[in-house]
Design a protein around this nucleic acid. Structure first.
Length: 420
DNA sequence: ATAGGGTTAG
């Protein structure tokens, strides 16, 4: 196996070669059978050098072998802040925030990277409130947040839908960064945050103020507009994007298709789906198919949606069938709904929400005996245990649905009305 | 030679 000369010249790596071991960064091989006492691998001069220990820790962590990484971390004779940051980051990225927190508490002298690793970790594992708490704590102890901190916090706000905190961060960012504008990552995060918090106007302002725009910038604003039902603007921006030098990617097309779906622009959606393949050589993925099914379903083209799914080159997932099932419910198509449900059950037999959805279809058509069958199906497969809500609640929901939303003329059985 | 950052269908 060829090795870069720089590593051959390095005494530390030669040491490994003598042991017939491969540096992990080169080969991906691990030190099999060597998980006993790591300290024996190193001579005294190596022990004094923290860097290779941290490098090994980092290398194993990146390959997903956290246990091994931790052994190196523990066996390190001397640790510096980078060593701690490596290990904390490893846990944070894996979502093992308890372990990360434990180490974090042990670090006496933290720096901004230590804090950022924790904050980013909490955001990644969906504990955005904790991320914001960490940020407060960080300010309390006098650590200065930087752009990386702010990026994580913006993602937290987007997730929480917390516009007020998001705007505060935007504000402090304006003071932090030079007035010539944000870097692309921060700008994109701001657009995303504003869009997800429902402030499309602010998202558009950030978008317009950005000097440098990359594909994610366009995607954030096209997708954001689409989700909020501003199909016209979303598609207009897509047209602008095509005129710019930035090439749309698969995510762009998800946004565009969502826009078409929400606006009921079926023919346009079909064209963009075709354009994606023929014009940009992008193979549609499961999300694109999902958008198409949603678009056809919303428009009431249920048969076509069904045929579309059957023509897919990739295996439809539960979301696809659930989307069609939802469309069948809205349009009151019991027959297709049942067929969609059969396919759905083949994929996931343990999701009670799907049974509930089916029972809603039946209920909204007044077919209460079938609701009973679904209930039995749930009992038989033991799904009900895992249900977040009982079937009684589902029936109630279906009943309310029927009374206020359904166009069906089928009357309800008196017993059900009594329950209401 | 070791640490931190982004968008995707219901």
């Amino acid at each position: 196996m060829r090795k870069p000369p720089i590593l051959n010249a390095n005494p530390w790596f030669s040491h490994h070669q003598r042991l017939q071991l491969q540096p992990i960064s080169l080969t991906g091989a691990h030190f099999q059978g060597r998980h006993g006492n790591f300290s024996e691998l190193f001579d005294d001069s190596a022990k004094r050098d923290v860097v290779p220990w941290s490098a090994l820790t980092s290398g194993y962590a990146k390959r997903g072998e956290l246990d091994v990484a931790r052994r190196y971390f523990d066996d390190m004779p001397v640790k510096d802040l980078v060593s701690w940051n490596v290990m904390i980051t490893a846990y944070a990225k894996r979502g093992e925030m308890e372990s990360a927190r434990k180490l974090f508490n042990e670090v006496l002298k933290k720096d901004v990277v230590t804090w950022n690793a924790m904050i980013a970790g909490y955001v990644l594992s969906g504990e955005c409130k904790k991320a914001l708490e960490m940020f407060e704590e960080m300010k309390t102890v006098g650590e200065r947040p930087d752009e990386v901190t702010m990026l994580s916090l913006l993602n937290a706000c987007a997730d929480l839908g917390d516009l007020q905190v998001g705007m505060k961060i935007h504000w402090s960012l304006s003071e932090m960064v030079s007035s010539s504008g944000f870097n692309v990552l921060l700008g994109n995060a701001l657009i995303d945050m504003y869009a997800k918090c429902g402030s499309i106007g602010r998202a558009l302002k950030v978008f317009r103020d950005m000097r440098e725009k990359d594909v994610s910038t366009w995607n954030s604003v096209i997708g954001g507009l689409a989700i909020h039902g501003h199909a016209e603007e979303s598609i207009n921006l897509f047209t602008q994007m095509r005129r710019s030098k930035v090439r749309p990617n698969e995510i762009t097309f998800v946004g565009v298709l969502v826009a078409c779906s929400h606006a009921g622009r079926v023919n346009e959606g079909r064209q963009y789906f075709k354009l994606m393949r023929d014009g940009y050589n992008i193979e549609p993925n499961i999300r694109h198919y999902g958008c198409m099914v949603d678009m056809l379903g919303r428009a009431g083209l249920l048969d076509e949606a069904f045929k579309f799914i059957d023509s897919m080159l990739i295996e439809p997932n539960a979301i696809i069938w659930r989307t069609l099932l939802g469309a069948c419910r809205i349009h009151g198509n019991v027959e297709l709904g049942r067929r969609a449900n059969v396919r759905l059950l083949k994929i996931r037999q343990d999701e009670s929400g799907d049974y509930v959805l089916l029972s809603n279809i039946y209920a909204s058509k007044g077919e209460w005996d079938r609701v009973e069958k679904v209930r039995k199906m749930m009992d038989d497969t033991g799904v009900r245990k895992d249900a977040g809500y009982s079937l009684i609640e589902a029936e109630e929901k279906a009943l309310i649905d029927f009374l206020f939303n359904s166009k069906s003329k089928v009357s309800l059985k008196p017993t059900n009305l009594v329950q209401c």
